[in-house]
Design a protein around this nucleic acid. Structure first.
Lengths: 154, 154
DNA sequence: CAAAAAGTCTATTAGAAGACTAGACTTACT
DNA sequence: AGTAAGTCTAGTCTTCTAATAGACTTTTTG
């Protein structure tokens, strides 16, 4: 159940980009790489993928860089993660974007499928409802008031 | 965000085992392997792991086999998946059982961490609340009444 | 126009993880 | 003794991950 480095770096970069929205959001790869501690060449690939998926735009040449293709409140994390890490579904037989039979005799009465469908929904609920704007807002709040914003479990 | 084959096979096998609870729940590896279409040698390893984790018990020799170490309503899927696939957390900095710093300057105000913590909770909520007994009940119900028990998305 | 500063694109690679497979060994029943 | 189970260790083959390298294109600016 884990997010790859590509996914992690991609989301980090998008959050970084979102934080520059408004005040001329043009940002260079190497600046993001430095701030977020991401290998620049790897980040390059990731941002390109995100661009091809329509989530980013860019400008070449001096003074160029990347910027969000849409306002931060219209980009959700589900989209970003799907582009970089593939389907959210833990198992292909409950995925819409990459459905594949898991070979059980009757999907309708497959116990594993029922639960994994619930898991998929739970993940998608969180990720699809959370926009980059939501995150920058939460980060903002965490800076203002100390106290735990997360509760590690598991 | 995906479940490995080990995890998938393990859960399938446990559900299979649970369905034999009561009527002398002793089942052989190769029977499970056949019913669930799992390579027998691979399943062997998986069941052994599950046994060492205290979720299964077994008996050697003729007439032997595996059976649940506890009643089906006291075994939840979260436990099974953690044993076979490791932490549910998508990223190590929100995992209790395998915490590791993700290297961000301040975890308290890390946007990625906040969201991934929500995801972890969402996954754990589903998996930790669902027992093998719940599943066999749902499967039972699905057999009785047709109609969709799942709603594929994503 | 040349140089520099950006992004673009393709290929390669070292290592790890995933998904098995093989085979020898142990225990228990008949 | 023989057979039917589970136990345990190791090995293999393939795919994926996480980079890295390097050549190329576009744009600005001196």
């Amino acid at each position: 159940m884990k997010l790859s480095k590509r996914g992690e770096y991609g989301v980090r970069a998008m959050i970084d980009l979102a934080s520059w929205e408004g005040r001329n959001g043009m940002v260079q790869i190497k600046d993001i790489a430095e701030r977020e501690h991401i290998p620049a060449k790897f980040l390059e690939q990731i941002l390109l993928t995100l661009k091809n998926a329509g989530l980013l735009q860019s400008k070449m040449g001096m003074g160029g860089g990347y910027y969000l293709a849409k306002p931060a409140d219209q980009i959700n994390l589900g989209h970003i993660v799907r582009v970089l890490d593939g389907p959210l579904a833990p198992i292909r037989c409950v995925s819409q974007m990459a459905y594949d039979s898991c070979g059980c005799p009757d999907e309708h009465s497959c116990g594993l499928r029922m639960v994994m469908n619930d898991v998929r929904s739970a993940i998608a609920d969180v990720l699809d409802r959370t926009t980059l704007a939501d995150i920058t807002k939460r980060v903002e709040m965490a800076h203002n008031m100390p106290g735990d914003t997360t509760r590690p479990n598991d």
